[in-house]
Design a protein around this nucleic acid. Structure first.
Lengths: 353, 353
DNA sequence: AGTTAGCACTCGATAGGCTTGAGTGCTAAC
DNA sequence: GTTAGCACTCAAGCCTATCGAGTGCTAACT
């Protein structure tokens, strides 16, 4: 079961080679490598062992070997070295954000595109899920409707139109906004029932309006799949694993179903770091893909971003780009002053199952 | 230049056949058709004429003929019969919307997906561009920041965080909201400069805040590419024109660049109906595509939706689906009471250049 | 004059056969 | 334990032959 150092070294060489060439790797290729000092025959023997142990597979008799997902797992967990992003790229990344402090959605959208451009894989990002809201505002629209807007420190969280009974004036709505905010803002979801109970008593004169408000509020607090950003899905077509149209189609339609992606990301939200390889994703149409995710923080909210590429992806590079992006986003999205010191990357690379 | 009736009939037969099979059409195939009553030799002569006139092309000597974009243009303008959507599908469509009267973005997203599913092509939709806003609301966040939210009758239009000078209280912001709304809401963009001029005088005591407000307002009024919905891009891979990976990739990355799509749609916003075929789109990577668009109305806003498919698309079907979708969305998005009678489809099919 | 049958010709697509070369696994010698 | 040597495998590339759908032209027919 355990691999001796030589097997390790050979496996690493095979994976490194395969990652860049996408072609089955033969024993001679490895034996010729600098610092290997072993003949192809010896490598063959070792490869044969590695195959038996489940780290390699051969597409057919006279082709080379291809790493299995177990090999990638090992690679990610123990072999790979992650270097941090070179300063030149780091500052390039920073420059993307410096220009615009606009709406959150725009920032996320640019970030997602940058992520994809820098890795040449598909990237995916979910907006920070706010744990608590800063304010609830009722905005008068017509005499019979109003807009209920929940707001966080970063901007509008959600909004919905509600009907209001006749006789409720804008000033009324303003006062009500203040009341709702006072009772509900800043609280954790667990504290809501009690607060709502109390509010219900105080507003017993306006049962109908109150019911509508709470109904909308509840809907707004549900996590929604809506805010998933995807970029660079077309890039996957450039990688040889998707020269088969059927595979390509199946992958791309998975990448289009936002709730599947949302689920994949939400499951990893709060996990600082995660790498899921092929079968571990248990998502049909992504069997040949890996997903690397990082969680990022914006104020009280936690979001997750990830890169989806073939299992044969440049894990090291992807991880360092994600790491950098997380830091840069933190800086860009936090108003100056409330900034925390940047956190050193921890050496946890295991998939948090 | 003019085509006699027989050439018309033959051309129609060729296009019909090619639309369903995607294979070059030969003379025998046409001569065997019901009600044609001509030998293949005669058809060949006619085809030869049609080729000279630019309506047909042959990929190589011994293949059949393929319609050119001119043929499709003729087809769409003069030959095609559009039947309205069968009631069963119509009500299916309606049922999608009946369940949810939620946020605008959700509705648009479902509509786009439905459009793609019903046509088996890619669909694209742009949110209604509001011409005037119903209210401007300033929502206090922290002691030094506030959220400026512009709102239409249908919900939040846009929002952005602004810094507020010390000493500005929530009540202050509320009063200011009312003032801004009174002076700016409901107005056309052309009336803004005058109103802003006047406001500027009145608020001369708060130059800094005023400048920030107007700055944000201006940004929010710019039309943005952000709200483009795309669905079913992966479906294009199923059509034989995109069995070539290079073409597929180029198309898909075009479909991913939202501002290109936004431009295509915005240019057609307000045009009731438009069909653009291949080269008419003048968009690299979409030379083999057609775009059919329809504009829809929601309150004071006008949005546009479209279907992108191969030039060899089922124009009739696509048009009837779009027509139906427009009507259904109208019903679904207008609050009951303010509903207009549904408009009969006009026979304008020309591309509005 | 328009239509059609007949025929030679073109050319992509498909299938079989051959060659090449990268790769393996095994064995025997070092 | 390592390596050289060798027989064997199999995909990929290439050539060739065949097939058939399709055209264009000409001559005969209505």
């Amino acid at each position: 079961m355990d691999l001796d150092e030589r097997k390790f070294k050979i496996l690493q060489a095979i994976i490194d080679d395969y990652i860049t060439t996408a072609m089955p790797v033969g024993s001679r290729t490895i034996s010729r490598k600098e610092g290997m000092g072993l003949s192809s025959a010896t490598i063959r023997n070792e490869m044969s062992d590695l195959e038996e142990l489940g780290y390699l597979a051969s597409p057919h008799t006279s082709a080379g070997r291809v790493p299995s997902w177990r090999a990638y797992r090992l690679y990610v967990d123990q072999i790979m070295r992650v270097s941090s992003l070179p300063p030149s790229e780091y500052s390039l990344l920073r420059s993307i954000f410096s220009s615009r402090m606009g709406q959150m959605e725009d920032v996320l959208s640019s970030a997602t595109q940058a992520l994809s451009a820098m890795t040449d894989y598909t990237s995916v990002m979910i907006a920070p899920q706010m744990r608590s809201i800063a304010r609830i505002q009722l905005v008068p629209l017509t005499s019979s409707t109003a807009l209920m807007v929940t707001v966080t420190d970063e901007g509008v969280h959600k909004d919905s139109v509600i009907a209001v009974p006749a006789g409720v004036t804008p000033d009324h709505l303003y006062a009500l906004s203040n009341l709702l905010t006072e009772r509900l803002a800043g609280k954790d979801a667990s504290e809501y029932p009690a607060a709502i109970q109390e509010l219900s008593r105080e507003m017993s004169g306006q049962r109908e309006l109150f019911a509508r408000l709470m109904d909308s509020l509840q809907k707004q607090m549900e996590p929604d799949a809506h805010s998933v950003h995807v970029a660079g899905a077309a890039r996957m077509l450039a990688h040889p694993e998707y020269s088969d149209l059927k595979k390509a189609r199946s992958l791309l339609s998975t990448l289009e179903t936002q709730d599947k992606l949302a689920k994949l990301l939400l499951r990893r939200t709060g996990v600082e770091f995660s790498v899921a390889i092929g079968p571990e994703l248990s998502e049909e149409g992504m069997q040949d893909c890996s997903l690397v995710t990082v969680s990022y923080r914006v104020g009280s909210g936690v979001g997750t971003m990830g890169v989806i590429g073939p299992t044969r992806m440049h894990y090291g590079r992807v991880i360092s780009v994600l790491e950098a992006m997380k830091n840069v986003m933190n800086e860009a999205l936090l108003p100056p002053g409330s900034r925390k010191e940047s956190v050193k990357r921890k050496e946890e690379k295991h998939e948090g199952k």
